[in-house]
Amino acid sequence: MKFSNLVLIVCGLAVLSGCSSNMKVRYTDPTQGQVVSTEFSSTDLQLIAGAMVDSMMTFQPLAQITNLRQPVIMVDKVKNKTMQHIDTESVTDSIRAKLVKSGKFRFVDRTTEDAVMNELNFQKTSGMVDPAKAVETGKQYGAEYIVTGNISEITQTNTKVTDTYYKFTLVLKNLNTGLIDWTDEKEIRKIGTRGMFGN
């Protein structure tokens, strides 16, 4: 190859590599699959929360109890054992929201306890609140069940392929007996392949 041709090619490539394309934005259905990468996505979150709550509701022994009365349950924050910074509080919220909407349970929430204590203290000690209208303490419900969960991940990578496996486990524990009344797991596997050619 002539030297001058080489120079032209190098200069041409240098110019081309500067190209960029504008981002296009549109609205879409949150439950619709959007596979962008092998990372944990909003679709995975929806999938998990939906599948888990359905599984719990349709579990026969539990359905028998919820037909008679509404047990009080507490949902603990899901533990993140993956290699990604997943907002597990949001996963927890989704699960709780779906359980609440089913109308089969009643809920206690210990994560807001600091704010509750502040308010109760204010009612008692500030002198601003009419004692007749203040909340009586010592009458709160205790949870009969506690829901705990964790997400774990196994990822394998080589030059071309990233294979990621997520496992989400949810456990319903009976606080009276200490027994696990229900548990289920949901698995998601994503495979990402690197393109051969691109910029």
């Binding site: 490539l13 590599s17 990468s37 990402g192 690197r194 393109g195 051969m196 050619f197 691109g198």
Partner: peptide, 14 residues
């Protein structure tokens, strides 16, 4: 995650 043969990679290698 860039494509295995990428234009920008080729420029740099070149």
């Amino acid at each position: 995650q860039k494509a295995i043969f990428s234009l920008s990679g080729a420029v740099a290698q070149g």
